[in-house]
Design a protein around this nucleic acid. Structure first.
Lengths: 225, 225
DNA sequence: AAGTTGAGTGCACAGTCGTACACTGACTAG
DNA sequence: CTAGTCAGTGTACGACTGTGCACTCAACTT
């Protein structure tokens, strides 16, 4: 159930959880919108997006089904919003983690640890994205594909500044970036399968992730067109 | 609709598609079972397994909903059967493709082409598996995970016979095998996104796949614990 | 020839689904 | 102060869901 939001105008006296302040109309609306997103994410903890009904989400957010349409014109639209919510912060963080470091080793370690922290902080978001990535046609999977391509491009751009890679054709650079992104996503999937609290398994997964990346990057100096 | 099977006892006169012969009872049953699997796969061409209803599948196979239970105790069980149907042949084929060749180059080319042919011959099966792989908890995803681990183990075993890899710890060997399997699965996903008939795109994807594998294997001689 | 088995039928049930429609009443702009 | 906007309400609909139950009748066993 998580943080069931109170949206009903009848009950908002109890909204004193937050200092509240002057609740403007649009602020109120945005709050319910967020409640819908949160409720959806909650329900998605152990289910697929396709099996999620508009009614369930509405109920989880504390509003009546038909009021859902005041915020999203369809479940699909909500799904896309959820994707965006997931990737918004991560992209910047990873970018930062890479540019702070110099040399493969530091960059690998920093990226893996940043990813790890972020995944653990937003498990439900990542569970949702890894599940829906290949879930078939539909706006959600398409939105995820777009975000992934952006990650890949970001990475390719940063990679181009390393010495042996400076002369690579962009095509090969993107190939390498895709390889890395895919490996990282595999790591995310592994992390999400670890049962909560098993920090030893976490550690093992991170070590494996670093190894995988090192394995990939080891071939770089010996590559030719 | 594809190959809608005729299971109704009233209509089986038209079952003269096949020479038919003496239709024993269990043979008949198995035929309807297959019709259910085919119908499900047909419907899964552009939908997720979770959104597939028992009634739809039954209708697609030409039987009444309640008769479904004569063959599977739940949709989940049908899903698992579908997974098994997908991987049954492929595993042996890939294994053969690898052992025929010697040297990385030949092995890579052979594996990629075997995979390509097989994917194109059974697109619906692979679409199903790639979609459901991370589709959440549930027997189907678990069954897929098991099959993937088997692929990986098969590969690790074969890899161990190459010279530089002979001395690797099994742990690292499995790491490498996972990396390769994951990359291959990415290729499958790409292949399935190509619109039918675009053979040029097919070719490009295969070249990229080979490059990816070469990139991974390039680092092998320089690896240390 | 008589009896048993079981794949497939048809009906019926209680739920859930998305969404159309007319509504209320707190906020807000004039 | 007044009129309008619009987030949220309640009812109602037809369609679809999984599954229980009693059934038929061809294929099989004895």
């Amino acid at each position: 159930m998580g943080h069931a939001a109170i949206a009903s105008t009848l009950l908002d006296v109890s909204a004193a959880e937050e200092p509240a302040g002057p609740v403007s109309r649009q602020e109120r609306k945005q709050r319910t919108r967020q409640a819908l997103l949160d409720a959806a994410l909650d329900l998605l903890a152990d289910r697929s997006f396709a099996s999620l009904s508009l009614r369930e989400v509405a109920k989880g957010a504390g509003i009546v089904p038909t009021a859902f349409y005041r915020h999203f014109s369809s479940m699909e639209e909500l799904g896309v919003a959820l994707v965006e919510e997931t990737t918004r912060t991560l992209r910047g963080m990873l970018r930062g983690a890479r540019t702070e470091q110099r040399g493969y080793g530091g960059m690998i370690r920093a990226s893996v640890h940043t990813l790890h922290r972020h995944v653990r902080e937003h498990e439900d978001h990542f569970r949702f994205v890894t599940r829906e990535r290949y879930a078939g046609p539909g706006a959600v999977s398409r939105a995820i594909a777009v975000e992934m391509r952006m990650f890949s491009s970001d990475l390719a751009l940063d990679l181009a500044r390393f010495d042996p890679l400076r002369t690579w054709p962009t095509e090969d650079l993107h190939l390498l970036a895709d390889l890395i992104v895919t490996a990282m996503l595999g790591t995310v999937a592994e992390l999400l399968e670890i049962r909560p609290g098993d920090t030893a398994a976490d550690e093992r997964t991170l070590v494996a992730a670093e190894k995988r990346l090192r394995m990939i990057l080891l071939g770089v100096p010996h590559w030719q067109p």
